[in-house]
Design a binder for these strands. Structure first.
Lengths: 236, 236
DNA sequence: GTGCAAAATATCGTATACAATCTTGCCATC
DNA sequence: GATGGCAAGATTGTATACGATATTTTGCAC
């Protein structure tokens, strides 16, 4: 039964099955539909996506490399549960690399890029004015997109990939420890950073970026949140 | 050949067999025993290590995440052949992150750490005085270990892992484009950096680090020399 | 009733098997 | 003789099967 359905919708849709599953799970993790610590059984994941354990395992392995999933030998895979120390290291890493990325991006930025950044800013502001879980998730994502776009503009694909990992893990940390009402404080700072870049005040832009990251980290609050089941997270 | 030995120690020594294979292949790539562009057939890799394609595939997949192997859909896996542009990005990334890592390391460094660094330096010098391919490989590895140790001392495991990737890919680039006689110039610079850290002259240490990375890159001959790969040579 | 031990169960680790896709070489046709 | 298509082989993509290990349950003794 699965072969017919799969042949229609799952297999021929895109590149490879494992990457699709990986992306789907990553999105679920980043958007907090999957809570840290949730067990991701290979069997369950495979059944959920109508694929075999082979692909489920490959997807989990990939996510483990990105730091979003932790696999324990003979025990299983779990959504990463970053410790406060790990969270600190994530933001420390961001403070370390983002000023440099910003400088490289500023050196190559075009008017089109600036327009794109401002577009992201508008979207972010729109989401910020909305209420509810969906808007909050989208806001976290939009906030990350600002930083990812800077990395993209910088032209260094290696740093871009690293930032993607850092932003994803940051989202996980924010979903875990963030105080929901406070995460919006970064919005205006994004705008300030763009303005500083436009004004060619790079040192100030870097300082703003550092403060911005520090502000995000300062808004964290260590508190446990209850997990959402694997099946519920994907059943729409 | 070593199936019996592997069967005995493989299970309890490392987490999983795939990681052992991954490490073995990575070492072979970094030490230039495997040339860029070499095809890594899943079957061949599996036979070589006396494991099934499952583990071979997992190992190749992991290496592709690290940028040391490129897998092409339905075509196979190949040892990565970094382009000059990619090489520039690697060193650009290192210039971006290593001064920051150095500062963090300097803030936490202990006398034991300094002793360890000096030990690495001695080993590096010893290898530098030797001739031959083996010494050259070991020298590349030792040179990388200096930077990796700094990342270790910094205490940020995320940056440490990123540096491991950057160093491994740098070794690949050096093996490809490096002018063999010139790679030893970095040795004294390593010592200078340690001295600057000991003297608490952080700004100077960072400057030395930047110059050091730039020197390594300057020693590269970044022209296209794609004689080995049969297909890539004509596509680009 | 409590605690330990051993079997039963579930899950992961690895190997093998089958299907899909690409490559290669041959042959028919123009 | 050149070209295009078709078939055979090779390689990857995915699924299933079997063995190993951890967890849970059950049963017995105290």
């Amino acid at each position: 039964m699965k072969s017919a359905a799969k042949a229609q919708q799952a297999d021929d849709s895109a590149e490879t099955g494992a990457q699709q599953i990986r992306d789907a799970i990553r999105e679920a993790i980043v958007e907090r539909r999957l809570s840290p610590g949730t067990k991701l059984s290979e069997n369950d994941v495979g059944n959920l996506f109508n694929v075999s354990r082979t692909l489920a395992r490959a997807a989990l392995q990939a996510l483990s490399y990105e730091g979003l999933v932790s696999v324990e030998k003979n025990r299983g895979a779990f959504v990463a549960y970053p410790s406060p120390e790990e969270a600190r290291q994530i933001f420390s890493a961001r403070r370390l690399v983002e000023p440099g990325i910003l400088r490289e991006a500023a050196a190559r930025i075009t008017p089109d890029d600036i327009a794109h950044l401002r577009q992201l800013l508008l979207e972010e502001g729109r989401l910020m004015s909305e209420r509810g879980q969906t808007a909050r998730r989208a806001e976290i994502k939009a906030s990350g997109d600002f930083h990812l776009t800077l990395a993209l503009i910088s032209g260094n694909s290696i740093m871009q990939r690293f930032m993607e990992e850092l932003v994803a893990r940051s989202s996980l940390v924010i979903a875990l420890y963030g105080q929901s009402t406070a995460s919006s404080c970064g919005h205006s700072e994004h705008g300030d950073i763009i303005s500083a870049i436009e004004a060619n005040e790079l040192d100030r832009a870097c300082q703003l970026m550092l403060h911005h990251i520090t502000h995000i980290e300062a808004d964290l609050d260590l508190r446990e949140r209850k997990s959402l089941g694997l099946k519920e997270a994907f059943e729409l």
